[in-house]
């Protein structure tokens, strides 16, 4: 049941949807290709959502197991990427809900106990635009921004992963960009054409 069918083409040459289709027929090798194709993107996505690299790796494993268990539900008419990211997002949300109940460690203590290269990487990321975005934006705005510009999803795909409509994604993106621009370049985001009324000045 688990052996790969001998029919050509080789799994490497197939699209993600075709690989998923073969996996539905019981080809575990195809699923392995899917794992190698998407593990980096899923880990990065979960890392951005949770802000913890180790949790992201654990949840990536959980995501792929869930995907494998439910591969028979995947409809190849739709994109495999959006389906997988939807599972990853739900896994992250479940983790977040359960983690809220546990006692959190202080960040300083956590960094000290970890690999120095990881700490350096996090220090670099702390100064980055995405780090600022996470601090500034609401979770939904940040998620929309990451899926659109971090993962390169289209508006429609972002809406599918977020389980919302395209209009809401556009609104979230617009608000996120405006808020970010205001922080990065306060002068640029000043409303145009508005003149201050001198009589209202104290």
């Amino acid at each position: 049941m688990l052996e790969a069918p001998s029919a050509d083409p080789k799994p490497v040459e197939l699209s993600a949807e075709e690989l998923a289709l073969r996996c539905q027929e019981g080809c575990l090798e195809s699923f392995e290709h899917l794992v190698h194709q998407f593990e980096q993107r899923i880990v990065n996505f979960l890392n951005k959502m949770l802000g913890c690299r180790q949790d992201a790796e654990d949840l990536a494993q959980e995501t792929f197991i869930k995907a494998y268990k439910n591969i028979h539900r995947f409809d190849p008419q739709y994109k495999f990427t959006t389906w997988l990211f939807t599972i990853a997002k739900r896994t992250a949300m479940n983790h977040y809900r359960s983690a809220r109940a546990t006692v959190e460690l202080t960040p300083e203590k956590e960094v000290d106990e970890r690999d120095p290269s990881l700490a350096l990487e996090e220090k670099d990321q702390a100064q980055s635009l995405w780090h600022k975005a996470r601090r500034l934006l609401k979770p939904s705005q940040f998620e929309a921004l990451w899926l659109r510009y971090g993962e390169g999803f289209s508006i429609g795909e972002t809406a599918k992963v977020m389980r919302t409509n395209e209009l809401r994604v556009r609104v979230l993106l617009h608000r996120a960009r405006t808020k970010m621009a205001k922080q990065l370049d306060p002068q640029a985001s000043r409303p145009s054409g508005k003149t201050e009324n001198p009589s209202r000045k104290p």
Binding site: S128, A133, Y149, G150, L184
Partner: peptide, 16 residues
């Protein structure tokens, strides 16, 4: 801003 976001996302994408 959108260019920077895309660029930084690619730069920060670490190998698992």
């Amino acid at each position: 801003l959108t260019r920077q976001l895309s660029h930084e996302a690619r730069r920060q994408a670490t190998q698992p």
